[in-house]
Design a protein around this nucleic acid. Structure first.
Lengths: 233, 233
DNA sequence: ATAATTAACTTGTATATACAAGCGGTGGCT
DNA sequence: AGCCACCGCTTGTATATACAAGTTAATTAT
């Protein structure tokens, strides 16, 4: 056997999608149907579907079926995941500690990022994300108050800022800057790490259809944060 | 059953690793041993090991065993994958078309990126990466000639610039800027896409211990490039 | 007509089994 | 000592089966 059977089935499915035969959200043959068509057991057909699902090419709903994932959610920009979901998926306990939540003036240094005038109302939040009570990420976020007026009323121990913003102002675009840095003393204390510990720092600007929604600086200790294959914000 | 058995096994393994019991490259119990310890079938134990391998927490060698993956390869910055490997892994055919390969002056606009003086010798390469003969990414790269003097002599249909640079000047750091753009007419022609097609553009600067090695602009059509969960450069 | 029940189909978890294929050491032969 | 065959252990692929649990649509009862 040159290629394993489950690989052949995967390639067949990918071909159907790439040739346009199976458009977005189209239903993919069920495990049993594929098993019959390819004369394999259900578990082998299942493996093909499962791996393609892991690769975000398909999505599955229990009891309902398997479907072609929408292309948009995969490419274009980056899949922006919710850190709380990610931690839960690891079987760990997520919690958050709110450090700051206030209205303030937009720092001059950030003016060009927002493309707004001096004096524009801005909200600022500072939250520490914890995994099993260990600080894993510091989130510093500047929010365009005119687009998200109710931001200060939220309880960010129940919902992450990213999740909240995604609901009230669906993002249409985002830019990222990613680098490794030695963080400031303040940040080191907040994250409970030593002064020489390198951190992964992601700066993200998000837009909705109305304009720049927020600018976030996400700082994670390099030794505690498994970045693996993807970015988790 | 509150959590599935394979999840419980995964958590147990993660705990051992995070508590330091199982250091990097330590051998993980075999499928049969885990099956016995947890009173499950080998296939269930296998699933736990396999999923952790997919998450880059373990690695497996046929005939040899399962081991704890080294932490470094996962965190720190970003896993920078080789686009050629990635395309091969999809079962597709990788090829490259070299557009330009020359010595030239460093464009003034890029001077601050390299932190070098005017007149420094620079190499420039422009390569199109193809998947099944379809253009999938344009790579424009400026190379610090003093650190990589033999760059122009390479044959980039056999080895990607990233692969070559990784060999001769192992990178210690990298920064990324990621955004969605409408590319120039020239780039659209090279990638054989329409003028309104949005592209994913990644700008990457890499450092070795000697200093800035190269600056690359990687442009990929948003509809042809599955970014999925990770960045592939 | 509407609501509740049921039946058929789907994915998810789990087991037991079989054979293939690669690695490593042990032991015997030259 | 060096070479080679072998054996045990490992991971990889594949099958057949069972039951759980969620969705959907048809059927039935109200």
């Amino acid at each position: 056997m040159t290629v394993p059977k489950f690989v052949a089935i995967k390639q067949h499915i990918i071909n159907q999608i790439e040739s346009g035969q199976w458009p977005e959200n189209a239903r993919v043959p069920s495990e049993n149907l594929l098993a019959e068509q390819f004369s394999v057991s259900r578990m082998t057909a299942r493996r093909a579907l499962q791996e393609l699902t892991d690769e975000n090419i398909l999505f599955r709903t229990k009891g309902s079926g398997t479907f072609v994932a929408s292309f948009k959610s995969q490419s274009s920009l980056l899949e922006i995941k919710n850190i709380a979901d990610e931690i839960s998926a690891r079987g760990h306990r997520y919690s958050a500690r709110q450090v700051t939540l206030q209205a303030q003036d937009l720092p001059k240094a950030l003016l060009p990022l927002f493309g707004m005038n001096v004096g524009t109302q801005i909200f600022y939040s500072e939250i520490i994300h914890l995994e099993n009570d260990q600080p894993i990420q510091l989130e510093q976020r500047y929010i365009n108050a005119s687009l998200v007026p109710d931001y200060l009323q939220q309880n960010f121990s129940q919902i992450t800022p990213h999740e909240y913003l995604s609901n009230v102002a669906p993002l249409t675009e985002a830019t990222h800057e990613i680098e490794a840095v030695i963080a400031s003393t303040q940040i080191n204390q907040l994250l409970a790490i030593s002064s020489q510990q390198p951190c992964l720092q992601v700066k993200r600007r998000t837009w909705s259809s109305q304009g720049v929604v927020s600018f976030a600086i996400l700082t994670s200790p390099g030794d505690k944060y498994r970045l693996g294959g993807h970015l988790t914000f």
